[in-house]
């Protein structure tokens, strides 16, 4: 499993986390290239169907990055994203799936370091966990 490289699908809010990722890049911070970023306008705009589709298609992890609570560009999108994540994880637990493959984190445009550290930590944890069972489970 030493050569296992996790695939992470990331949904990054345009106003905070995506800018944070940009800052990490322009500051030449090193972090694992395992996440495929998708820019979205708000963490609150990411419907669960997209998280589920990534997971069922065999992504090893799904990441959502949003503005810190109180800082949402649209005032309350991240609070709604937070509630939706509570429901999402409750459903994963209830149906016997691994909720720890899904990460929601608040990362501001100024937090390039936090972004790099978070992606590093998530990649490390997924390496420990190993590949998602949905890489093999095709009859979904």
């Amino acid at each position: 499993m030493a050569d296992f490289e996790p695939r992470i699908v990331g949904f990054l809010c345009n106003w905070c986390t995506y800018a944070g990722a940009d800052l990490a890049g322009t500051s030449r911070m090193q972090y694992p290239p395992n996440m495929r970023p998708i820019r979205v306008m708000c963490s609150g705009s990411v419907d669960s169907v997209y998280l589920l589709r990534a997971l069922l298609e065999g992504a090893d992890g799904v990441f959502i990055g949003g503005c810190h609570p109180g800082d949402c560009h649209y005032v309350s999108g991240n609070y709604k994203a937070r509630r939706r994540m509570v429901a999402f994880k409750s459903i994963l637990r209830s149906v016997g799936l691994d909720e720890d493959r899904v990460w929601l984190r608040w990362i501001s445009a100024a937090e390039g370091r936090k972004f790099a550290d978070t992606i590093t930590a998530m990649t490390d944890e997924l390496k420990r966990k190993g590949p998602s069972p949905f890489r093999e489970q095709w009859d979904v």
Binding site: D47, S48, V49, L52, R53, L56, E57, G58, R84, A87, F88, I91, V95, R135, E136, W138, D139, V140
Partner: peptide, 27 residues
């Protein structure tokens, strides 16, 4: 999509439908 796992179920997205429906209406 098929190449990702070598094969893919048809019709597709059965489980995706049920889990998404759960997310949308469970509350």
């Amino acid at each position: 999509t098929a190449k990702r796992k070598g094969l893919t179920r048809m019709p597709s997205e059965t489980l995706l439908f049920h889990l998404t429906r759960m997310n949308h209406m469970m509350a």
